[in-house]
Design a protein around this nucleic acid. Structure first.
Lengths: 190, 190
DNA sequence: TGTACATCAGTGAACGCGCGTTCACTGATGTAC
DNA sequence: TGTACATCAGTGAACGCGCGTTCACTGATGTAC
């Protein structure tokens, strides 16, 4: 049964959003097309009315997830608050609605360039926000971008390493706590 | 045709080493049991003479890969040299014989606890080496472990983000170069 | 040391299963008159 | 505005394929005497 053109685009968005969360939870290879469509409330056959391939959806889902991460970062008042939320236990334990970089950057390295391009673009947008958040600090303007890159890499690395340890293991928490303190100290240092 | 007991254990090692490299290149889901056995020079049927399951091999391969990374880190004269090699273009572009953490920590988060335990153990051993390498610096002994954790997370995060960008993209190189400088500066700072 | 037999590492065919993708079909939507 | 028809979003069965795993078999190795 055909559906309103507006409804169709809305459905496409639903699929992309469901995919964005499921991919973050289980990885690109951990979710099938049928799972994705079911999560959005459809049967799998209609998938190719919206996307050329699974890889095509992966790129769209990456863009969606990274925009979501961007919006959340923008919602924080300053860089220190962003870092504290980013390196919290609740973020580490909630992959599905957490940072797309931490959840999928490792997978992205093995994906087609369409996916990697979305990651690069997402990182650039994120850096712009981080630079703006840090602009009120006493740090030299010229090195603000460099500091933002370093902070982002540090945060992402800490979250990924923490998640690679067994749940409830002391090391997982230690990595999170140690890096949070180190990064906050380096932010203050300016 | 049966094979010497010594040859059998040697064959097992060959399989684990081949798996360690292939998993790093293509991820845990990107390599099948038949691929792994073929890479070691065998047919797939004999796999279960050596391992209870693919997950069982994944844990063994993680331990093997992390030991390799440990040995290479130990081979460096000091922390600064380790960081320079770690955040080099050749390391970024050579996943197969590069750091297991950077290649597979993202995947490990979704694997059974046996795999995650190997990662936690590997991280602990790596931290011990990093602490020793930094011991000659003027940094307070008490915070050496904290500094090592931060340095490791920062390095791993930078490599993963750089790899998530399209090959040859300026951002991929910028992340690598920026983080290398930042981390080296923070090492000097002590 | 030599013989007879059990063991088991490695082979290659086969298993059921889930994957990404295709297809004929349905029926409400969009469009031409 | 009303009618006739083409379009196409969504359905569900089907496709070929590769996956992890199992199995009967082979024949050299290990062992008991």
């Amino acid at each position: 049964m055909r559906v309103t053109k507006a409804a169709a685009t809305e459905n496409r968005t639903r699929i992309v959003q469901a995919a964005s969360a499921l991919f973050r939870e289980r990885g690109y290879d951990g979710v099938g097309v049928a799972d994705l469509m079911a999560a959005a409330g459809f049967t799998h056959g209609g998938f190719y009315n919206h996307f050329a391939s699974k890889a095509d959806l992966m790129a769209a889902a990456a863009a969606c997830g990274l925009s979501q991460t961007l919006a959340e970062t923008r919602g924080e008042s300053n860089a220190a608050e962003s870092v504290r939320k980013y390196l919290s236990r609740s973020h580490r334990d909630g992959r599905g609605d957490g940072c797309t970089l931490a959840a999928l950057a490792g997978d992205a390295a093995r994906q087609p360039v369409a996916v990697k391009s979305e990651f690069a673009a997402g990182i650039e947008r994120l850096l712009a926000v981080l630079e703006a958040e840090g602009a009120d600090s006493d740090c030299a303007k010229g090195s603000m971008r460099g500091r933002s890159i370093a902070t982002l890499a540090h945060c992402v690395g800490a979250l990924i390493l923490s998640r690679a340890c067994p749940d409830e293991s002391p090391l997982a928490d230690e990595i999170l706590d140690t890096c949070r303190n180190e990064i906050l100290a380096s932010l203050k240092r300016g």
